[in-house]
Simulated scan of single mutants.
Amino acid sequence: MKAVTLGAMPDELGYFGEFGGQYVPAELKAVMDETAKAYHEIRQTPEFQQELAELFTHFVGRPSPIYHAKRLSAQQGGAQIYLKREDLNHTGAHKINHCLGEALLAKHMGKTKVIAETGAGQHGVALATACALVGIECEIHMGAIDIAKEHPNVSKMKILGCKLVSVDFGTQTLKDAVDSAFIEFMRDPKNFFYAIGSVVGPHPFPMMVRDFQAIIGTEAHQQILAMRGQMPDVVTACVGGGSNAMGIFTGFLNESDVELVGVEPAGLGLDSGQHAATIAQGTPGEIHGFKCYLLQDEQGEPLPVYSIASGLDYPGVGPQHSYLKQIGRVNYESITDKECLDAFMTLSRVEGIIPALESAHAVAYAMKRAATMSPEASILVCLSGRGDKDTDFVINKLGL
């Protein structure tokens, strides 16, 4: 395995190697720079740190536990599989970690409205929850296709009091929801705060979201060491934009003996054209104000993407993921819809845990990989969310 010792990232201009940055108009650059300045100042204050820490403990329910999936491990006949249970967080996923941070930051900056996109709805629910908690108006943009698919999360957002905007142009999925939210944000960037839902977008958002999600890796590093007396052999997580993966990977980046694996959606197959395997099939390009690996056409325009998991169907990926791929520190694999559904049902029926379809991609990879390893080895999976939002869809899909 390639031994890499990583220093502080990104640099002062928001780059991870050649990826990241701020590819935005001058007016928006000034807003991004203001946000970066406020973030660096506010996050250091004892008041902000204490408020966020107390909310993580008493509102979210952190630390989330690590669970040894003994029956699943025995079924695969190889490595021991452990699950970092982000699905047990309040609102049901890892998204609440950075949503609380962003909502608190917006409050401290004196913003009047928080705007965001959502794919599967987990970011939308988490942000609507955080905004209700701190008392800030919330507006969520969501593709019409995803609204129809993720009805439980749509209902929760409405109950929590956010304004839900249906995005009916383009592919009517996550990429277009981002476009729509940016348009609304630009109406009044002085008073509005754009709370990006992953480690994507112009600087400082890839850094900010990673920092708020790093608690996953910090906890997991301590927990797995206490449970096993050693580091895991493999740490894996699903990757769309890549926030849950960056969260857990951050705790292990400098553990050179730990293999890190990001799992992308292969959809109907990498040769089908119906997938969202950005790193496997993409090339460097620009989208939504930053540079990353991108699924794009010859003119540099983002290609339509597809995944059974609404939270993974994004044509780009976080710039830090792009950099970690380029230097060889993280390996990126892909899982098909069929493998995802099999893992979804297997984990549900073998361990009594219904995962989000996004998370089921990482579970599927762990199941495949565990079978090739010895029983003394271990794989740690970031179980990024629970599958409440997906149950009706899966039942209809499988005819159960």
Rank of each mutant, 00 (worst) to 15 (best):
M1V: 15
L6N: 01
A8L: 08
D11A: 02
G17M: 02
Q22Y: 01
Q22I: 02
K29P: 11
A30K: 15
A30W: 15
H40F: 12
I42F: 03
Q44G: 08
Q50F: 15
Q50R: 14
F56I: 03
S64Q: 03
A69G: 08
A69R: 04
S73C: 12
Q76Y: 07
G77S: 15
G78C: 05
L83N: 04
R85K: 08
T91N: 05
H94V: 00
H94F: 08
K95E: 13
K95Q: 11
N97M: 09
G110P: 06
V114W: 02
A120M: 10
A128L: 05
T129Y: 13
G135I: 15
E139G: 02
E139A: 11
I140V: 14
H141W: 04
D146R: 03
I147G: 00
N153H: 12
N153A: 13
V154P: 05
K156L: 11
L164M: 14
V167K: 07
A177T: 12
A177M: 06
E184A: 11
D188G: 11
N191T: 06
F192V: 01
F193G: 07
V199I: 09
H203D: 00
M208K: 03
F212M: 03
T218Q: 10
Q223A: 14
L225C: 09
Q230G: 12
Q230W: 03
M231F: 12
D233N: 13
A237K: 03
G247N: 05
T250A: 10
F252I: 06
V258F: 05
E259M: 09
V261L: 02
L270A: 07
L270D: 10
D271Q: 14
A276I: 05
T278H: 01
I279F: 07
T283F: 08
H288P: 00
H288K: 00
P304R: 11
I308G: 06
S310L: 06
V317W: 00
Q320M: 01
Q320V: 01
H321Q: 06
K325W: 08
V330S: 00
S334Q: 10
T336C: 09
C340H: 02
L341R: 13
P355I: 07
S359K: 13
V363D: 01
V363H: 08
Y365N: 02
M367W: 08
K368S: 13
R369H: 13
P375V: 13
I379N: 00
R386S: 08
F393L: 10
L400S: 09
L400E: 15
